[in-house]
Design a protein around this nucleic acid. Structure first.
Lengths: 224, 224
DNA sequence: GTTTGAAAGATTACACATAATTAATATTGG
DNA sequence: CCAATATTAATTATGTGTAATCTTTCAAAC
């Protein structure tokens, strides 16, 4: 097990590092392996410089988390992420995010808000790929300390699926600008500690994101 | 792999059958293994009449699903289900159930409602243990066909954790009666296809259940 | 074009070797 | 003599190789 990943690990959302589990999940999140791809144990063992069992165990864990689908005697594949998955994930996020955010509005510290502002500043000069990472960091920061860590984990997993689906689709500048503006509004409402306002912006933010991606991915679905 | 379980598998909530995964999960849900218990691979392999590797893989899958916690070089344990877990699980259910139920109210068929009524009838003469099973079946029936299978799976998992926590605590008759009444109200509101009414009863139903168990399990926590 | 059958490839389960942890025992200091 | 620590023994986890079984693939025959 002396494999070194070229690409950096999707920082905040993948806890464990330097494990086969993390490598595979990272490769799924970065669309190195895409929806439906076969995950052959021998190939993976070779790629990550280890034997079959550790790979099988990593795949089983990923199966439990929903990223991989295993058919008996037929092997593992990256789970099918299609249009319906996008809808499902967004609807779950739409339940979770207001719930997680509400706590943050009331309990966050000044330093949290300053960190968010720092991220916002970085966003303004970020490229497409950097932006996605900053966006993830922004929301991760707001949720990660929530008392309901089960819910946080749920959010994390759904967010990773989203990243996997979006990895090879570019974000257009109009949407980035709109998204930055929404983040700014969130921070502003946070300063006032106005729960209703924050949740309002959040709902709009998720809704817009959902609309954007569903439009995009429905097209790419129609093509393939 | 020729192990035969004495106790029947928690029927609807555990899909796979006759697998080590299902056996272990079933034993967790029935509190054969309780929160914090060490899950030693060799022991489990012996118990379920198989070798170590399949056990390890089952444990990894259960880890991914949150039922088992694995520490490097130190092995697997049943995840810690304590008072905070109860709160977390109930809050997640409180988000999920209205979401899942809303669809059912609008889309369910007459035969679904008849099945629910049949379950209700059985509830009225059920013992404590049977009641819990019927209650699970009731809600499973309402959710299992929802278009968002990711959400359904989420509900399933959280419900299993609840079952694991409640397995060795008895349900008192007052709560059973109250619970039956709530189910009756749900069916009634379903007949009218009145979303608001159903969600109202549901919120109360979950709330009451949460109150009941938190009171009970906080006591058992204080004792231990 | 469909079916059949053989060969290659992969999955699964098992046994073994090694490394780490846990426990049990002995030793030391107060 | 007791408590805390150190040492040793047992247990357990982890990773590798291998054999058997099942799938898939590909080519030949119908």
């Amino acid at each position: 097990m002396s494999y070194v990943e070229e690409q950096s690990v999707i920082s905040p959302l993948i806890n464990e590092e330097s494990t086969i589990y993390a490598y595979i999940l990272n490769d799924i999140a970065n669309a190195v392996f895409v929806s439906g791809d076969r995950l052959v144990t021998t190939k993976l063992a070779e790629k990550y410089q280890t034997s079959i069992n550790p790979v099988r165990e990593a795949l089983k864990q990923l199966q439990g988390e929903g990223f991989v689908t295993v058919s008996p005697n037929s092997g593992a594949r990256v789970s099918i992420f299609e249009y319906n998955t996008l809808r499902d994930v967004f609807e779950i996020l739409q339940l979770l995010e207001p719930y997680l955010m509400e706590w943050f509005v009331e309990e966050h510290l000044l330093e949290d808000r300053l960190e968010l502002k720092a991220l916002l500043t970085k966003m303004e000069t970020a490229t497409d790929l950097e932006y996605r990472n900053l966006d993830t960091q922004f929301h991760w920061l707001t949720y990660k300390n929530h008392y309901n860590q089960k819910a946080v984990d749920l959010w994390r997993r759904n967010r990773l699926i989203l990243l996997a689906m979006q990895a090879n689709v570019k974000l257009n500048t109009t949407r980035i600008k709109q998204s930055i503006e929404e983040h700014r509004e969130i921070i502003h409402a946070l300063e006032e500690r106005d729960v209703t306002a924050v949740l309002g912006v959040m709902a709009r933010h998720i809704g817009n994101s959902g609309k954007y991606w569903s439009r995009y991915l429905s097209v790419s679905n129609r093509i393939s």
